[in-house]
């Protein structure tokens, strides 16, 4: 047996002895310790404690149900907001629709380029409409009503986005009905991509930028970009790009939109009421 093994054995014996000693002590005083009984609080007192705990129980939330409920509320409010959107918005966008059709049918413009240019314009003009109340000093008044300003802007954005979607679909379907050589899927891809990208930018503007002029600037930038697209060599390059690129851009922009909407709904916006 080595010295270390001997020490270990001695240590184990010591531990066993101490445990034994502890057991004896427990047996020695055990019966006496039993005498220290406890008088418990009454049932009513226990119930009072339970009632004090009730507010601390997390509130039961069915996430799916809550999501559907929020969406229903948002759509209902959006329908209500239709009546508060300026007639100028509807007229201007109907004109865009006519311009797009005329440019393709009469001006024999490239339909893909045309739809790409026009796709996000209703959203950008709609953003002006959505922020109009803030700019005209109506925001404080709106905030005193039942819904918050961000909820109202979100509702307007839903209407504007929906309208843009509808107008683009109508243009796409009209073009493919009259021009059989136009490929519908390609047309859809050509308007969905700029539409989602510009909508994402619009939501970022609504959420972050505090100046109305930022929207005007975005609109001007997009129109200049439109001028570039209308040149045949540039549209040719865009047409040669793989559809995967468009799809990836659309998905990324879509995620930004979802993120922004969630952010607006949960936290509200931080822009100033009196710029």
């Amino acid at each position: 047996m080595t010295k270390r093994e001997g020490k270990n054995d001695q240590g184990l014996v010591d531990v066993a002895l101490r445990d034994q000693e502890l057991l004896h002590l427990e047996q020695d005083v055990g019966s006496l310790l039993d005498e220290y009984d406890v008088e418990y609080p009454s049932e009513a007192e226990i119930m009072m404690t339970i009632d004090r705990l009730r507010p601390f129980v997390p509130v039961k939330v069915n996430k799916r149900e809550l999501m559907f409920r929020n969406m229903a509320v948002l759509l209902k409010r959006a329908l209500h907001e239709i009546f508060y959107i300026s007639p100028l918005f509807w007229v201007a966008n109907s004109l865009f629709f006519l311009v797009a059709l005329a440019a393709v049918f009469l001006g024999e413009q490239n339909p893909y380029g045309m739809i790409m240019i026009l796709a996000p314009i209703p959203t950008l003009t709609g953003l002006m409409e959505a922020l109009k109340s803030r700019n005209t000093g109506m925001a404080e008044l709106e905030m005193s009503f039942k819904y918050s300003l961000q909820e109202m802007i979100l509702s307007k954005m839903v209407i504007i986005g929906g309208f843009n979607l509808l107008i683009n679909l109508v243009i796409s379907v009209s073009l493919t009905v009259f021009y059989h050589h136009i490929w519908l899927w390609k047309l859809l891809l050509f308007w969905i991509t700029p539409f989602t990208v510009m909508t994402a930018i619009a939501f970022i503007i609504v959420n972050r930028l505090r100046h109305f002029y930022a929207i005007t600037a975005s609109l001007m930038i997009w129109i200049s970009f439109g001028g570039l697209i209308s040149q045949s060599h540039f549209i040719g390059k865009l047409e040669s790009l793989s559809p995967v690129v468009y799809i990836l851009i659309t998905i990324s922009a879509g995620l930004v939109i979802i993120g922004r909407i969630t952010h607006m709904y949960k936290r509200g916006m931080t822009y100033e009421l009196n710029p």
Partner: peptide
């Protein structure tokens, strides 16, 4: 998940 009954059982 929001059960008051479970809280009562655990507390008791």
């Amino acid at each position: 998940t929001g059960s008051q009954a479970a809280m009562e059982v655990l507390t008791r």
